[in-house]
């Protein structure tokens, strides 16, 4: 009998399913039901849900770069906020398993040559004990290549939208991407400021294009 990673109730599965190779779900149906997958029309660049497919106003402002777009898997609703707070701030690493299958599939569809995690500033990494972006990659059974590093800076989540967009570059190249396409995997996409700074640094490391997969789309 498996326990739900969030509420510790038993997870349910039809008893014949394992014979067909199905894995026991990590969440019970109740907890799973509270998470909201992003489906339907969305911005092709940032995954913002929209009336019809296209490019959202904010993405039009960003203009051309080697950042080729973001796919977010879930909306950042109350249940997701709580889940990510427990995962990232409380440090419940085990919760990365909830998204393993989703991340693996999205990474395959993105079809990039390399995968790179978003580094944390050293003091924040020490405080949190692990990097949530690396945890998501590891749980999905993928491996990342250290192409960029990050300097000490203020927490992104403490800043306003304008401050985030105008924030200074804190990422710097440490590896060689050798003209290849790079996929970045992270927990939340808010304004896209972080991922664009990451893309710039990856460009300096020699990446041809950069895509991202994020668990949740906030600020939509």
């Amino acid at each position: 009998m498996k326990q739900c990673l969030l509420c510790e109730n038993e997870t349910e599965m039809e008893s014949w399913l394992p014979f067909f190779g199905a894995k026991a779900p990590v969440l019970c149906p109740r907890c799973l039901g509270k998470l909201e997958k992003i489906t339907g029309p969305s911005c092709r660049w940032c995954s913002r849900p929209m009336e019809e497919d296209g490019l959202c106003l904010e993405c039009r402002e960003w203009g051309e770069s080697l950042f080729a777009g973001n796919i977010s898997l879930y909306s950042y609703n109350d249940a997701m906020k709580e889940l990510i707070a427990r995962f990232k701030y409380r440090g419940d690493y085990a919760l990365a398993a909830i998204f393993a299958e989703d991340v693996r599939r999205a990474a395959k569809e993105a079809a990039c040559d390399l995968i790179c995690a978003v580094p944390l500033p050293p003091s924040r990494l020490f405080e949190r004990r692990f990097n949530q972006s690396e945890a998501l990659i590891e749980a999905a059974g993928l491996s990342s290549i250290p192409l960029i590093g990050r300097m000490e800076s203020e927490k992104q989540s403490k800043k306003s939208r304008l401050e985030r967009i105008n924030s200074e570059q804190t990422f710097y190249p440490v590896g060689d991407a050798g003209g290849k396409s790079v996929l970045v995997i992270d927990d939340i996409y808010t304004t896209g400021a972080t991922i664009r700074r990451v893309a710039e640094a990856l460009g300096e490391a020699g990446a041809s294009t950069v895509k991202s997969v994020t668990i949740a789309r906030s600020g939509a």
């Binding site: 990494l125 004990r129 692990f130 945890a135």
Partner: peptide
């Protein structure tokens, strides 16, 4: 109920 990961500390 334990889990584990490589720890930055």
């Amino acid at each position: 109920n334990f889990s584990s990961h490589h720890c930055a500390r």
